[in-house]
Structure formats: structure tokens, C-alpha cells
Design a protein around this nucleic acid. Sequence first.
DNA 1: TCTGGGGTCCTAGGACCC
DNA 2: TCTGGGGTCCTAGGACCC
Length: 425
Amino acid sequence: MNKVPHPQPALPTILHADLDAFYASVEQLLDPSLRGKPIAVGGGVVLACSYEAKKFGVSSGMGGWKAQQLCPTIQFVGGHFKEYQRLGDEVMKVLEDFTPLVQRISIDEAFLDVSGAVHLFGPPGEIAARIRTRVREEIGLPISVGAARTKHLAKIASQVAKPDGLVVVDPRYETEFLEPLPVGLMWGIGPVTQAKLAEKGITTIGQLAESSGESLTAWLGKALGGKVRALAANDDQRKVRPTGRAGSVGAQSAFGRRVLDRDFARQTLGHLADRVGRRLRAKQRAGRTVTVRIRFAGEPGTGAGRAITRSHTGRPVAGTLTLTEIAESLVWGAIAQQPGPPEAVMVSLLAISVSNLVDQASLQLELPLGDDGEVTDVAAARWALEHAMDAVRDKFGKAAVGYSSTALSRHSVPDEFRELAEREL
DNA sequence: TCTGGGGTCCTAGGACCC
DNA sequence: TCTGGGGTCCTAGGACCC
């Protein structure tokens, strides 16, 4: 690795701000009796947990019963989902007081480029400290911040800073900072890649940086090899870009292992199409590509089920019924390709995603078209029906009228929680 | 009894056009 | 007789992130 100090000492002007154990911290903020205690948001599945619970090995996504086993004193609390959204937004407003260059990555995390703010607020480290103080004092939440020359480094720095800390990476000593850290801290290195690297005896970023590009390509494939190489070589050129709109909208539903019959498929896909369609219509958008995903339930004991996708690209769609029909035909087409009779195919998840999004500014365009490109009576009736239903639900709530929702399995997660993960369309 | 949902990005291969 | 190269769009799969 190159140990020569950076020739022109740049400032660590990229910040990564990340709220600590966000949902759990909000619960502890709202109910002081929960502070300092191991808690988890959720029930059947741990959606989030406090640092006190993490000490016991509890982590998000874990089954509730397992969390209980690891940490017998853990307290499960229901989620105040509206508060998560509100407080997350408030934190972002604090960040925007320092610079308009804020790229929100999720409800609780954002990058900032403060290069234009140093004259007003002082050096990046000072800005980061002020952010932490303000979020703590004005909102009441702990937040960790990393400051560095690049996004990648800033992100790693904030992870190292957790919980409730601040790490500034001096541009002259980036290599020394990175070398001893585990490869898993790098953006883009997940469990699969980590395991592959571990097989080769590579566990730290320093070891990764010493590996040749050819080796990495051979081990990880061209795409990942190149990317990993660039990151390990500390060559991250990405800019902080104010958050853009989503490029796709989707919904998925996991259920137990079961045979996919016509009724169940229609109900489930109808429900998913409705979730997706409503979001599209609310923002006057539509998508040209409809993709379904099917996860097959492997025989018990044979490990995780294989998942496949099938897609169709055509005219922009946003209508629930049209989406449902396209999805159904894609699903049955894929099922037919599976070995064995369709009645024997077991599935565990269905998903619909719509991409290639376009704006549908005018009513004219939003009207669904018949096969010949003309607006048909049926299509017009559907359009009218769906917009009427959207209006009723906006006024009286989701449950007022709608497509029957799939019988909720114990796996499913509250709708409010799903909505937190939705990106702005 | 290894789990839930919304996204992004990347690649390879094939079709089609010029 | 075929021989090329480049670009774009589409499909499918995979890994990853929060």
C-alpha cells in the first residue's frame, strides 16, 4: 500500500451521519422507562433492537423467540411508526441547515458534502460535532458521524464511530485507518463475498489491498473484482447527490410453503399489484416493465429456495387490474417451465416490481389502452373504478374499500413498517 | 425449525439496427 | 460464399444495502 502522505492535503469534507439503533432509540426517547434496557421493536420478527440487546447477540431480522432465548430480559415493544418518519425527517432538516448537499440513503442515514460550508461553520470535524450536539439536544437521539475525503471512507468511519461517536479520517493517514479493518465494513462486501475472501485468507482491508487485481477478478468475477479493487485501493469517486426519485416500485409477500393455486395466486398478486398501483397512481407515474419474482419452497432440509424472475416490457401501466393480469400471466408462464406438474410446485414468496417509470402528467396518457391502442370501454371503466377507490381510501382509510388482502400470515410485517422503507416516487 | 420487505446496481447474452 | 463493429434494448440472475 501507498504510505506516502497525500500530496495536497484535502479536507475530509464528506460526512456520513447515521442514527444509532434508530427505531429502538425512538422508543426509548418516547418511553423513558425503556432507556438503558434491552428492547426490541416487533414481535414475531425483530425489526430493530437497542444496543443493550445487541450486547446479547440480538440483531434485526432475527426471530422473536430466538431473541428471547439470547436475552431473556428483552422487552418487546410495538412500533411508533409515524414517529419514526417524523423524527427521521427532523434529523434530515438539521443536516440541511449545514448544506443543501444532503443525500438521504434511508430513513435514518445520509451523506453530506460540507465542502462549501467550512467557511461558515468551521472544519468538517467541527460541523460533525455540531450536528451530533444539535440532534441530541433538539431531537433527543444519538447519532454517529464519520468524516472523510470520500463517501466510502465516511461511511466506514461512521460505522467505526458507533455507537454515539464521531470519527474523522485524516486524509494523510487513510491507509493506516483502513488497513486493520475487516473487509465486511466495505460498501458492497456482504456475506457471500466475505466468505469467498475468507477462503483465501483475506479478512482485512489491508490484505485485500495487497491482492492483485487478477486474483480478485478470478475469485469474485469481473464486476465485483473491479469494484472491490477500486474500493480497497481507496479510489472512490462518487459524489454526494441530492436524493433522487425511486427507479422502481415493488411489493412482496412471503407466506409459508404452499402449492400455488389459481385463487391464491390471483388474491396475492392482486393485493401486491394494488399496493404498487396505488403508489404509482398517487404520484402520476406508471411503469413500462413489470417483473414478478417467485421463490420456490425447496423440499424441507434442502436449504433456501431458489428464486426466479420473469418480466414483461410494454406500454406504461399503473392500473391494479392490468398489473394483476400481467403478473398472473408471467407467474403461470414461469410455473409451466418448472419440472413436474404445476400442482406440485411449492412456492414461498411472490413479488411484483414495476420499473422503467415514466411520468403520466396528462389524463390522456394515464388512460389505459386497448390492444389496438384505442381506449376501450373496459379500460376506461377500470380506470374510473380504480381512481374512485383511491379517492375513497384517501378519505376514509385503507380498509374502507379495496382488493381483498391475502390472509396475513404470521410472517408478515405491519403495513406502517413497510411504508417506512418506501422510497419517494 | 433461517427470518421480512423495499430498493439499487451490475453483468451476460440475445435480438435488432445501422 | 461472410465478415465486422458499435449501440441500444430487453431478459434473467445475483449480490448487496437498510
